[in-house]
Design a protein around this nucleic acid. Structure first.
Length: 562
DNA sequence: AATAACGATACA
DNA sequence: TGTATCGTTATT
């Protein structure tokens, strides 16, 4: 598609006989209908690059960005983000110190942000990368001003030379494109003829331009809207309203006078008017003058008025509030009930788990009483699978299946103990025995949050005595205990390696879960209670009100829903 | 709303 | 194919 520089409409290249390649060489293009309307319109082409300008581009320093070299001496590229005229656009070197520069590969950065140097971000058109603290909108006005002045200068020359531009001017044509753009904006605003063809009455023209500046902004902001305003009265209306607004502002914010420019006269008179009037304190019955930048003569008066307000408003609001049943309150109550029930169930589960904990300790203690049975050990010993191998899940070493459990347990402990897993706070659960490791690490100022029974970082598995028995309760069909215990020597039993630890961990983990659940329920209850107590509080009543539009049907739910 | 991240694109 | 930088989206 190619855009007409006259009417700003877009045309399909194929339909107007402009190929993509041909379009590249075109700088200014007018559609057939525009050309029919005004035969003086001419399609202008980009000039070809000369050898001389190419030579000029060489010898760039590492600080010089690509676009600098791209930018030939006489022409700086204008784009959506570059006005091509401001200090930033003219700048050729990256500062190497701003965050964007530091991000660049050439300065050893990770190239994540990918934006050009802060100092080279266009003052007018860059997105939000401009130097902090400078208002973009004001800059936009400034740009418009700049464009306007440039356009004027150009028109002046245009008139002197008469007719078309001279060859020389075409060469150093820095402004032509900006002018073109401006022209389009004016055209879009419905002012095209005035601007380019008038030759007399400079002042009147300036005046009309000033008005247009406002309109241009207006159009710019809505450029996405397809339809264009055609009437001429509309922009004038806009200008008038704009001015009225400013006058109004000037009256209200008298303390901020002298801020933004472009306001026009009238401000001084306003100030005098204000200076002569002292305002009366708004305190109830008070006849003192108000303090400057306050509505009251004293804090006391302000408080009095506030109190009066409360007395005035709140009783009425309470009445309003009581007119309809509070659905939220009802739901809250039901929620609370549910939470209570869940809490009860969780507590029950907790006592159950504590019981399990003690049971397990009992079983473990009991199992220790057994004696090592030597003949069984012999049975364990055979099974000629020496060449079978499985791979450790942690270190991937091949190990014999008989010792695999033992190896993996140790291997895992080795790696696990190299990392820490902690929080800033020690565990404070009342009435719970042996849950978290909670060893303090002064280096990281954290408390270890692994289960104590399986924290390889802070506790070693106890050394096993020579005559100690394995003692793992034997089971039938996985779950059914047989009442028997494994009576192999603990050091030699590969089947039940660390069985106490794993069983304890199982129980402890479940206990932790129950505690978490309990904690969560407490939190829910707390939030719910807070919400319920805050409901219809003084502040809420002052701030909000419920209007009963239909006092007859207060509750739209059926009895069943409730 | 500001900022960070990142795919997309123009251009050499 | 690599660089510069844009526009959009995600994150803070």
């Amino acid at each position: 598609m190619i855009g007409c520089d006259g009417c700003a409409e877009w045309f399909h290249g194929g339909c107007v006989g402009v190929s993509e390649k041909a379009a590249k060489a075109i700088r200014v293009w007018f559609c057939p209908s525009c050309r029919d309307g005004d035969p003086s319109l001419e399609i202008k082409y980009r000039q070809k690059k000369t050898k001389a300008s190419e030579a000029e581009e060489d010898g760039s320093s590492p600080f010089q960005s690509m676009s600098d070299s791209r930018r030939s001496a006489q022409q700086i590229k204008r784009s959506a983000r570059m006005c091509g005229e401001c200090e930033a656009c003219l700048r050729t070197q990256d500062c190497a110190t701003c965050d964007f520069c530091k991000d660049m590969k050439k300065f050893g950065g990770p190239n994540k942000i990918r934006q050009k140097c802060r100092l080279r971000q266009c003052q007018f058109r860059a997105r939000m990368w401009h130097v902090p603290g400078v208002e973009q909108k004001m800059l936009r006005n400034k740009e418009e001003e700049m464009n306007r002045r440039n356009a004027m200068r150009r028109r002046e020359r245009y008139r002197k030379h008469g007719g078309d531009l001279t060859e020389e001017e075409e060469e150093e044509d820095v402004f032509s494109e900006s002018e073109m753009e401006l022209y389009q904006q004016y055209k879009a605003a419905g002012f095209s003829d005035l601007l380019w063809h008038s030759g007399e009455e400079e002042e009147e023209e300036e005046e009309s331009l000033r008005k247009k500046a406002v309109k241009v902004k207006h159009v710019k902001r809505r450029e996405k809207k397809p339809e264009k305003k055609k009437s001429l009265s509309a922009p004038k209306e806009e200008v008038r309203r704009h001015k009225a607004k400013q006058r109004h502002r000037g009256r209200v914010r008298h303390s901020e006078r002298g801020g933004g420019g472009g306001g026009g006269g009238g401000g001084e008179a306003d100030a005098k008017e204000l200076g002569s009037t002292l305002r009366q304190c708004l305190g109830p019955g008070c006849v003192q003058p108000a303090r400057t930048s306050s509505k009251y003569c004293s804090d006391n008066c302000g408080m009095k008025l506030a109190a009066n307000r409360i007395y005035e408003i709140v009783p009425q609001r309470i009445q309003q509030w009581q007119q309809s049943p509070c659905v939220a309150e009802e739901m809250g109550r039901r929620q609370l009930e549910r939470i209570r029930k869940e809490q009860q169930a969780t507590r029950l589960r907790l006592t159950l788990m504590e019981k399990r904990f003690h049971e397990l300790e009992g079983i473990i203690a009991n199992s220790k009483l057994n004696q090592v049975q030597h003949d069984e050990e012999a049975n364990e010993g055979d099974g000629d699978d020496t060449d079978l191998q499985i791979f450790c899940v942690s270190c991937s070493h091949p190990v014999n299946p008989k010792v695999a459990l033992r190896h993996m347990e140790r291997c895992y402990a080795k790696y696990e103990s190299q990392t820490s897993f902690g929080s800033m706070y020690p565990t404070r659960i009342e009435g719970a025995t042996r849950l978290f490791c909670d060893v303090y690490n002064p280096h990281s100022k954290t408390y270890c949050k692994r289960l104590q029974v399986l924290c390889p970082e802070h506790s070693r598995d106890p050394k096993v005595a020579v005559d100690e028995v394995c003692g793992c309760p034997l089971v039938k069909d996985v779950f059914e205990p047989t009442g028997e215990f494994c009576r192999v020597s603990k050091r030699k039993c590969n089947k039940h390696y660390c069985w106490e630890k794993l069983r304890r961990a199982e129980v402890d983990l479940e206990r932790v879960r129950v505690w978490y659940k309990l904690d969560e329920l407490f939190e829910q209850e707390r939030n719910l209670r807070a919400a319920m107590t805050n409901r219809a509080g003084l502040l809420a009543l002052m701030l909000h009100q419920t209007i009963q539009h239909d006092p007859v049907t207060t509750d739209l739910r059926s009895a069943k829903d409730r």
